[in-house]
């Protein structure tokens, strides 16, 4: 078996484990390429049966419009049991990328919103697309990552994982985060997208888009909520995104890679890491680790 076959087989085994061991699992779908691969793997894992759990999107209200369109289309095409949750209370309190710091925004609209969603439907395990190669603190993440009843991740309480003998037990109120792509790299993900023809949101492909310059990167003006500087007008540039999230925080870069083949060629020559385009990880040293301890996915 080659490398991709092995990664796929392991991921499928992890997903089946979740279905067999948890009372009420859910697949976290963030619409990005990693989530799309996880969803694809999940559909393969249970074939010929259908997906035995729902799919959850934590919507901040600031996702690219293309993402929402893609989400709804995928859900309809595959007949997914899609659940969408937004932290409405925070949204009403006007917590937006433009009114509070990214730390406050992230805590309210992602971390807190996810906890609310897990509680709202009583999910005990949430499958996500995080990879260990994404960021230093994620390099230590378990495949089955235990969260306290408060939703916190404590690096000192993580259980050692031996062989495939996963410890899936939870105490009252505790939850599990499960990462089937733990051993995948960004390159593996793209190779797999190519091999399996996994449908992706168009934002990954280069196209002329209206952008403005912010903190050394291009930010797409996706709707009229974006506060422009006096006299500023978005310019059209041929850009694409390497990873996607909330549009005001997601940096684009100039590229001509308009097809999957172009992207893979471009990736081979890439000299910067994937999360570089994200503004939220750069706040303070160890910022991802701090977010994780609070319960960020």
């Amino acid at each position: 078996m080659n490398h991709l076959d092995r990664l796929e087989a392991e991921a499928i085994a992890i997903m089946r484990e979740v279905a067999a061991c948890f009372r009420n699992p859910v697949l976290l779908y963030s619409i990005g390429k990693d989530s799309s691969v996880v969803l694809h793997l999940a559909r393969k894992a249970f074939y010929p049966a259908s997906l035995p759990f729902p799919v959850l999107h934590v919507d901040t209200g600031w996702k690219f419009r293309d993402m929402i369109r893609h989400r709804d289309e995928v859900a309809a095409r595959y007949g997914l049991d899609l659940r969408v949750h937004t932290n409405e209370q925070a949204a009403r309190a006007n917590i937006t990328p433009f009114t509070v710091t990214s730390a406050v925004y992230n805590q309210a609209m992602k971390t807190e919103a996810l906890k609310q969603a897990l509680a709202r439907w009583g999910f005990d395990a949430a499958i996500g697309g995080a990879r260990r190669d994404e960021e230093k603190s994620r390099a230590k993440e378990r495949v089955f990552s235990h969260r306290t009843a408060q939703g916190r991740w404590d690096p000192r309480l993580q259980r050692p994982e031996f062989w495939h003998a996963w410890n899936v037990h939870l105490g009252p109120g505790e939850t599990m985060r499960v990462f089937p792509l733990s051993d995948w790299t960004e390159r593996d993900v793209w190779d797999y997208v190519w091999r399996e023809e996994v449908p992706l949101v168009p934002l990954y492909f280069a196209k002329e888009r209206p952008v403005v310059r912010r903190q050394g990167t291009w930010i797409m003006v996706d709707d009229d909520r974006f506060p422009l500087e006096p006299g500023e007008r978005p310019e059209l540039r041929r850009v694409r995104f390497r990873s996607i999230g909330c549009y005001p925080y997601t940096g684009a870069f100039e590229s001509d890679a308009a097809t999957l083949a172009d992207i893979i060629v471009e990736m081979r020559a890439a000299r910067t890491s994937e999360r570089q385009g994200r503004l939220i990880d750069h706040d303070v040293p160890g910022s991802m680790e701090r977010k994780k301890q609070e319960g960020y996915f």
Partner: peptide, 8 residues
Amino acid sequence: MTTAPDAP
């Protein structure tokens, strides 16, 4: 699968 009219 195409995801939008302009999907590559």
